[in-house]
Design a protein around this nucleic acid. Structure first.
Lengths: 157, 157
DNA sequence: TTTAGATCAAGAACTATTCTAAAAAAGGAT
DNA sequence: ATCCTTTTTTAGAATAGTTCTTGATCTAAA
Protein backbone atom coordinates (compact mmCIF):
# COMPACT_ATOMS: atom_id res chain seq x y z
CA UNK A 1 0.00 0.00 0.00
CA UNK A 2 3.13 2.13 0.01
CA UNK A 3 2.11 4.04 -3.07
CA UNK A 4 -1.30 5.19 -1.93
CA UNK A 5 -1.67 8.52 -0.24
CA UNK A 6 -4.61 10.16 1.42
CA UNK A 7 -5.70 13.23 -0.45
CA UNK A 8 -4.70 16.24 1.59
CA UNK A 9 -7.10 18.81 0.21
CA UNK A 10 -7.45 21.57 2.79
CA UNK A 11 -11.01 22.64 2.13
CA UNK A 12 -12.77 19.30 2.07
CA UNK A 13 -12.66 16.10 4.03
CA UNK A 14 -12.25 13.11 1.80
CA UNK A 15 -14.48 10.09 1.68
CA UNK A 16 -13.41 7.41 -0.73
CA UNK A 17 -10.70 9.50 -2.22
CA UNK A 18 -7.42 7.75 -1.74
CA UNK A 19 -5.48 8.94 -4.70
CA UNK A 20 -2.42 7.98 -6.59
CA UNK A 21 -1.01 10.66 -8.80
CA UNK A 22 -4.32 12.45 -9.02
CA UNK A 23 -6.21 9.25 -9.65
CA UNK A 24 -9.27 8.65 -7.55
CA UNK A 25 -8.88 5.30 -5.80
CA UNK A 26 -12.29 3.75 -6.30
CA UNK A 27 -13.37 0.39 -4.88
CA UNK A 28 -12.73 -1.29 -8.20
CA UNK A 29 -9.33 0.26 -8.70
CA UNK A 30 -8.35 -0.78 -5.21
CA UNK A 31 -9.48 -4.34 -5.82
CA UNK A 32 -7.48 -4.51 -9.03
CA UNK A 33 -4.45 -2.94 -7.43
CA UNK A 34 -4.70 -5.29 -4.45
CA UNK A 35 -4.85 -8.29 -6.74
CA UNK A 36 -1.51 -7.25 -8.14
CA UNK A 37 -0.04 -6.65 -4.69
CA UNK A 38 -1.66 -9.44 -2.67
CA UNK A 39 -1.46 -12.54 -4.69
CA UNK A 40 1.39 -14.50 -6.07
CA UNK A 41 3.04 -11.52 -7.76
CA UNK A 42 3.17 -13.56 -10.91
CA UNK A 43 2.53 -10.82 -13.47
CA UNK A 44 -1.03 -11.81 -14.31
CA UNK A 45 -2.82 -10.91 -17.52
CA UNK A 46 -5.98 -8.81 -17.56
CA UNK A 47 -8.17 -11.92 -17.63
CA UNK A 48 -6.30 -13.44 -14.71
CA UNK A 49 -6.68 -10.22 -12.79
CA UNK A 50 -10.36 -10.29 -13.67
CA UNK A 51 -10.87 -13.77 -12.23
CA UNK A 52 -9.01 -12.93 -9.04
CA UNK A 53 -10.80 -9.61 -8.71
CA UNK A 54 -14.14 -11.39 -8.97
CA UNK A 55 -13.12 -13.31 -5.86
CA UNK A 56 -13.03 -10.02 -3.97
CA UNK A 57 -15.86 -8.27 -5.81
CA UNK A 58 -18.16 -10.59 -7.76
CA UNK A 59 -19.88 -7.78 -9.66
CA UNK A 60 -16.76 -6.33 -11.23
CA UNK A 61 -16.65 -6.47 -15.01
CA UNK A 62 -13.84 -7.27 -17.39
CA UNK A 63 -14.17 -3.86 -19.01
CA UNK A 64 -13.66 -2.27 -15.63
CA UNK A 65 -10.60 -4.37 -15.00
CA UNK A 66 -9.20 -3.10 -18.28
CA UNK A 67 -10.13 0.45 -17.35
CA UNK A 68 -8.53 0.15 -13.95
CA UNK A 69 -5.37 -1.42 -15.29
CA UNK A 70 -5.13 1.40 -17.79
CA UNK A 71 -5.67 4.18 -15.31
CA UNK A 72 -3.31 2.62 -12.79
CA UNK A 73 -0.71 2.27 -15.51
CA UNK A 74 -1.13 5.86 -16.62
CA UNK A 75 -0.97 7.19 -13.10
CA UNK A 76 2.26 5.27 -12.62
CA UNK A 77 1.03 2.93 -9.90
CA UNK A 78 1.73 -0.20 -11.91
CA UNK A 79 3.58 -1.22 -15.04
CA UNK A 80 2.29 -2.92 -18.13
CA UNK A 81 4.55 -5.68 -19.40
CA UNK A 82 4.45 -6.93 -22.96
CA UNK A 83 6.14 -10.04 -24.22
CA UNK A 84 5.89 -10.78 -27.89
CA UNK A 85 2.28 -10.68 -28.95
CA UNK A 86 0.93 -12.31 -25.87
CA UNK A 87 -1.62 -10.72 -23.58
CA UNK A 88 -0.22 -7.84 -21.57
CA UNK A 89 0.77 -8.57 -18.04
CA UNK A 90 0.80 -6.22 -15.09
CA UNK A 91 3.29 -5.67 -12.35
CA UNK A 92 3.35 -3.45 -9.26
CA UNK A 93 7.14 -3.31 -9.06
CA UNK A 94 8.09 0.30 -9.79
CA UNK A 95 11.83 -0.14 -9.47
CA UNK A 96 13.64 -0.26 -12.80
CA UNK A 97 13.84 -3.92 -13.64
CA UNK A 98 13.81 -6.36 -16.53
CA UNK A 99 11.55 -9.34 -17.08
CA UNK A 100 12.68 -12.88 -17.57
CA UNK A 101 10.22 -15.37 -19.07
CA UNK A 102 11.11 -18.98 -18.56
CA UNK A 103 10.14 -20.89 -21.67
CA UNK A 104 9.88 -24.07 -19.60
CA UNK A 105 7.77 -23.22 -16.57
CA UNK A 106 6.31 -20.11 -18.24
CA UNK A 107 6.83 -18.04 -15.13
CA UNK A 108 7.90 -14.44 -15.11
CA UNK A 109 10.73 -13.16 -12.96
CA UNK A 110 11.79 -9.64 -12.15
CA UNK A 111 15.47 -9.01 -12.76
CA UNK A 112 17.05 -6.12 -10.90
CA UNK A 113 19.81 -3.86 -12.04
CA UNK A 114 23.30 -4.46 -10.77
CA UNK A 115 24.24 -1.78 -8.28
CA UNK A 116 25.36 1.43 -9.92
CA UNK A 117 24.34 0.19 -13.36
CA UNK A 118 21.64 1.72 -15.51
CA UNK A 119 19.64 -0.04 -18.15
CA UNK A 120 21.15 2.05 -20.92
CA UNK A 121 24.74 1.28 -19.89
CA UNK A 122 25.58 -1.12 -22.74
CA UNK A 123 23.91 0.88 -25.49
CA UNK A 124 25.45 3.36 -27.84
CA UNK A 125 22.76 6.04 -27.74
CA UNK A 126 23.08 8.83 -30.28
CA UNK A 127 23.97 12.12 -28.64
CA UNK A 128 20.94 14.22 -27.88
CA UNK A 129 18.42 11.43 -27.64
CA UNK A 130 16.19 11.38 -24.59
CA UNK A 131 15.06 8.00 -23.29
CA UNK A 132 11.78 8.25 -21.47
CA UNK A 133 10.93 4.60 -21.12
CA UNK A 134 12.86 1.39 -21.48
CA UNK A 135 11.61 -2.16 -21.58
CA UNK A 136 13.82 -5.20 -21.36
CA UNK A 137 12.51 -8.71 -21.72
CA UNK A 138 14.50 -11.92 -21.78
CA UNK A 139 13.42 -15.38 -22.71
CA UNK A 140 15.24 -18.47 -21.60
CA UNK A 141 15.41 -20.99 -18.82
CA UNK A 142 15.26 -20.06 -15.19
CA UNK A 143 17.76 -21.68 -12.80
CA UNK A 144 15.25 -24.25 -11.60
CA UNK A 145 14.34 -25.39 -15.08
CA UNK A 146 17.95 -25.42 -16.19
CA UNK A 147 18.67 -27.72 -13.25
CA UNK A 148 15.83 -30.14 -13.81
CA UNK A 149 16.63 -30.33 -17.51
CA UNK A 150 20.16 -31.39 -16.70
CA UNK A 151 19.11 -34.77 -15.26
CA UNK A 152 15.35 -34.46 -14.63
CA UNK A 153 16.11 -35.12 -10.93
CA UNK A 154 17.90 -32.39 -9.00
CA UNK A 155 15.28 -30.95 -6.68
CA UNK A 156 17.40 -29.70 -3.79
CA UNK A 157 14.91 -27.32 -2.19
CA UNK B 1 21.56 -10.52 -50.01
CA UNK B 2 24.41 -11.55 -47.75
CA UNK B 3 22.33 -14.12 -45.96
CA UNK B 4 21.12 -16.08 -48.94
CA UNK B 5 23.08 -19.05 -50.12
CA UNK B 6 22.67 -21.29 -53.11
CA UNK B 7 21.78 -24.78 -52.06
CA UNK B 8 24.83 -26.94 -52.60
CA UNK B 9 23.20 -30.32 -52.80
CA UNK B 10 25.48 -32.65 -54.73
CA UNK B 11 22.93 -34.95 -56.28
CA UNK B 12 20.49 -32.43 -57.73
CA UNK B 13 20.74 -29.17 -59.57
CA UNK B 14 18.61 -26.55 -57.95
CA UNK B 15 16.01 -24.48 -59.69
CA UNK B 16 14.33 -21.90 -57.49
CA UNK B 17 15.93 -23.19 -54.34
CA UNK B 18 17.94 -20.46 -52.77
CA UNK B 19 17.79 -21.35 -49.14
CA UNK B 20 18.34 -19.71 -45.84
CA UNK B 21 18.80 -22.01 -42.92
CA UNK B 22 16.98 -24.82 -44.69
CA UNK B 23 14.21 -22.51 -45.86
CA UNK B 24 13.24 -22.65 -49.49
CA UNK B 25 13.55 -19.17 -50.93
CA UNK B 26 10.38 -18.90 -52.96
CA UNK B 27 9.44 -15.92 -55.11
CA UNK B 28 7.15 -14.59 -52.41
CA UNK B 29 9.66 -15.00 -49.62
CA UNK B 30 12.24 -13.23 -51.71
CA UNK B 31 9.89 -10.35 -52.41
CA UNK B 32 9.11 -9.99 -48.73
CA UNK B 33 12.73 -10.24 -47.74
CA UNK B 34 13.71 -7.71 -50.41
CA UNK B 35 11.11 -5.28 -49.14
CA UNK B 36 12.82 -5.36 -45.78
CA UNK B 37 16.26 -4.95 -47.32
CA UNK B 38 15.54 -2.59 -50.19
CA UNK B 39 13.33 0.09 -48.94
CA UNK B 40 13.72 2.65 -46.28
CA UNK B 41 14.73 0.15 -43.57
CA UNK B 42 12.08 1.64 -41.39
CA UNK B 43 10.89 -1.46 -39.56
CA UNK B 44 7.58 -1.83 -41.39
CA UNK B 45 4.57 -3.71 -40.06
CA UNK B 46 3.12 -6.71 -41.87
CA UNK B 47 0.53 -4.53 -43.63
CA UNK B 48 3.18 -2.09 -44.75
CA UNK B 49 5.28 -4.94 -46.05
CA UNK B 50 2.18 -6.20 -47.83
CA UNK B 51 1.60 -2.90 -49.64
CA UNK B 52 5.23 -2.63 -50.69
CA UNK B 53 5.34 -6.26 -51.75
CA UNK B 54 2.31 -5.72 -53.94
CA UNK B 55 4.36 -3.16 -55.82
CA UNK B 56 6.76 -5.93 -56.79
CA UNK B 57 4.24 -8.74 -57.10
CA UNK B 58 0.61 -7.58 -57.37
CA UNK B 59 -0.85 -11.04 -56.77
CA UNK B 60 0.73 -11.62 -53.38
CA UNK B 61 -1.72 -12.01 -50.51
CA UNK B 62 -1.62 -10.70 -46.98
CA UNK B 63 -1.73 -14.23 -45.60
CA UNK B 64 1.36 -15.03 -47.60
CA UNK B 65 3.14 -11.98 -46.29
CA UNK B 66 2.38 -13.20 -42.77
CA UNK B 67 3.56 -16.69 -43.71
CA UNK B 68 6.76 -15.38 -45.21
CA UNK B 69 7.51 -13.10 -42.31
CA UNK B 70 6.99 -16.00 -39.96
CA UNK B 71 9.19 -18.43 -41.85
CA UNK B 72 11.89 -15.82 -42.35
CA UNK B 73 11.78 -15.05 -38.67
CA UNK B 74 12.00 -18.70 -37.70
CA UNK B 75 14.84 -19.38 -40.06
CA UNK B 76 16.69 -16.48 -38.50
CA UNK B 77 16.83 -14.28 -41.61
CA UNK B 78 14.93 -11.42 -40.01
CA UNK B 79 13.82 -10.31 -36.59
CA UNK B 80 10.36 -9.57 -35.33
CA UNK B 81 10.13 -6.43 -33.23
CA UNK B 82 7.34 -5.78 -30.77
CA UNK B 83 6.60 -2.50 -29.11
CA UNK B 84 3.79 -2.36 -26.64
CA UNK B 85 0.64 -3.76 -28.19
CA UNK B 86 1.21 -2.29 -31.60
CA UNK B 87 1.49 -4.36 -34.75
CA UNK B 88 4.73 -6.29 -34.99
CA UNK B 89 7.47 -4.78 -37.07
CA UNK B 90 10.20 -6.56 -38.97
CA UNK B 91 13.86 -5.85 -39.30
CA UNK B 92 16.68 -7.48 -41.29
CA UNK B 93 19.42 -6.35 -38.92
CA UNK B 94 20.79 -9.51 -37.32
CA UNK B 95 23.38 -7.86 -35.12
CA UNK B 96 22.39 -7.62 -31.48
CA UNK B 97 20.75 -4.24 -31.16
CA UNK B 98 18.03 -2.34 -29.33
CA UNK B 99 15.16 -0.37 -30.78
CA UNK B 100 14.45 3.26 -30.12
CA UNK B 101 10.99 4.59 -30.92
CA UNK B 102 10.72 8.33 -31.17
CA UNK B 103 7.41 9.39 -29.71
CA UNK B 104 7.55 12.55 -31.80
CA UNK B 105 8.36 11.49 -35.35
CA UNK B 106 7.31 7.89 -34.68
CA UNK B 107 10.36 6.52 -36.40
CA UNK B 108 12.29 3.48 -35.27
CA UNK B 109 16.06 3.48 -34.86
CA UNK B 110 18.46 0.64 -34.33
CA UNK B 111 20.76 1.17 -31.37
CA UNK B 112 24.01 -0.78 -31.36
CA UNK B 113 25.88 -2.17 -28.42
CA UNK B 114 28.90 -0.31 -27.14
CA UNK B 115 32.04 -2.20 -28.02
CA UNK B 116 32.76 -5.07 -25.66
CA UNK B 117 29.39 -4.66 -23.95
CA UNK B 118 26.66 -7.25 -23.93
CA UNK B 119 22.99 -6.57 -23.49
CA UNK B 120 22.88 -8.41 -20.18
CA UNK B 121 25.74 -6.38 -18.68
CA UNK B 122 23.67 -4.22 -16.32
CA UNK B 123 21.38 -6.98 -15.12
CA UNK B 124 21.68 -9.08 -12.03
CA UNK B 125 20.79 -12.46 -13.53
CA UNK B 126 20.26 -15.30 -11.06
CA UNK B 127 23.00 -17.88 -11.26
CA UNK B 128 22.14 -20.72 -13.56
CA UNK B 129 19.67 -18.91 -15.75
CA UNK B 130 20.12 -19.23 -19.49
CA UNK B 131 19.12 -16.28 -21.62
CA UNK B 132 18.14 -17.35 -25.11
CA UNK B 133 16.63 -14.16 -26.38
CA UNK B 134 16.66 -10.55 -25.27
CA UNK B 135 14.59 -7.66 -26.48
CA UNK B 136 15.26 -4.05 -25.58
CA UNK B 137 12.98 -1.23 -26.62
CA UNK B 138 13.24 2.39 -25.67
CA UNK B 139 10.77 5.18 -26.11
CA UNK B 140 11.72 8.80 -26.12
CA UNK B 141 12.83 11.59 -28.38
CA UNK B 142 15.41 11.14 -31.07
CA UNK B 143 18.16 13.78 -31.40
CA UNK B 144 16.39 15.53 -34.27
CA UNK B 145 13.11 15.84 -32.41
CA UNK B 146 14.84 16.88 -29.19
CA UNK B 147 16.49 19.67 -31.17
CA UNK B 148 13.39 20.94 -32.88
CA UNK B 149 11.46 20.84 -29.62
CA UNK B 150 14.03 23.05 -27.98
CA UNK B 151 13.05 26.11 -30.04
CA UNK B 152 10.90 24.75 -32.89
CA UNK B 153 13.46 26.25 -35.28
CA UNK B 154 16.85 24.54 -35.31
CA UNK B 155 16.90 22.70 -38.64
CA UNK B 156 20.60 22.68 -39.40
CA UNK B 157 20.68 19.84 -41.90
C1' DT C 1 -30.70 17.97 -2.83
C1' DT C 2 -29.10 19.15 -7.10
C1' DT C 3 -25.76 19.10 -10.52
C1' DA C 4 -21.81 18.02 -13.24
C1' DG C 5 -18.35 15.08 -14.03
C1' DA C 6 -16.16 10.62 -13.36
C1' DT C 7 -16.61 5.77 -13.31
C1' DC C 8 -18.82 1.37 -14.10
C1' DA C 9 -21.08 -2.51 -16.60
C1' DA C 10 -22.40 -5.14 -20.58
C1' DG C 11 -21.94 -6.08 -24.84
C1' DA C 12 -20.69 -4.67 -29.55
C1' DA C 13 -16.89 -3.48 -32.41
C1' DC C 14 -12.24 -3.51 -33.82
C1' DT C 15 -7.60 -5.09 -35.28
C1' DA C 16 -3.75 -7.81 -35.80
C1' DT C 17 -3.00 -12.28 -36.43
C1' DT C 18 -3.83 -17.26 -37.11
C1' DC C 19 -6.36 -20.95 -39.03
C1' DT C 20 -8.68 -23.68 -42.76
C1' DA C 21 -9.30 -25.69 -46.99
C1' DA C 22 -8.54 -25.89 -51.58
C1' DA C 23 -5.58 -24.70 -55.55
C1' DA C 24 -1.01 -24.15 -57.33
C1' DA C 25 3.85 -24.93 -57.47
C1' DA C 26 8.05 -27.45 -56.73
C1' DG C 27 11.07 -31.38 -56.25
C1' DG C 28 12.21 -36.15 -56.82
C1' DA C 29 11.71 -40.57 -58.95
C1' DT C 30 10.44 -43.16 -62.67
C1' DA D 1 8.36 -35.33 -69.71
C1' DT D 2 4.98 -37.48 -66.30
C1' DC D 3 3.36 -38.94 -62.00
C1' DC D 4 3.38 -38.50 -57.07
C1' DT D 5 4.21 -36.20 -52.70
C1' DT D 6 5.13 -32.31 -50.12
C1' DT D 7 5.35 -27.50 -49.59
C1' DT D 8 3.56 -23.13 -50.41
C1' DT D 9 0.11 -19.86 -51.68
C1' DT D 10 -4.37 -17.84 -51.55
C1' DA D 11 -8.82 -16.12 -49.82
C1' DG D 12 -11.70 -15.87 -46.51
C1' DA D 13 -13.34 -17.32 -41.92
C1' DA D 14 -12.16 -17.45 -37.19
C1' DT D 15 -9.89 -15.95 -33.02
C1' DA D 16 -8.08 -13.34 -29.06
C1' DG D 17 -7.07 -9.44 -26.75
C1' DT D 18 -8.40 -5.08 -26.31
C1' DT D 19 -11.07 -0.82 -27.00
C1' DC D 20 -15.32 1.57 -27.75
C1' DT D 21 -20.18 2.84 -26.87
C1' DT D 22 -24.08 3.66 -24.26
C1' DG D 23 -26.71 4.15 -20.46
C1' DA D 24 -26.68 3.59 -15.46
C1' DT D 25 -24.47 4.64 -11.11
C1' DC D 26 -21.56 6.98 -8.08
C1' DT D 27 -19.04 11.00 -6.12
C1' DA D 28 -17.80 15.55 -4.77
C1' DA D 29 -18.98 19.91 -4.53
C1' DA D 30 -22.32 23.70 -4.66
Amino acid sequence: MAYLKKEMSNSTQNTQADVFGGLRMTKQRKVVYDVLLDETRDHPTASQVFVRAQGKMPTISLATVYNCLESLTHSGAIKQVNVDREASRYCPNLQPHAHFFCSDCEEVFDIDLKSRATATTPWQLPEGSEVEQLEVTMRGKCPTCTDSTREDSGSEN
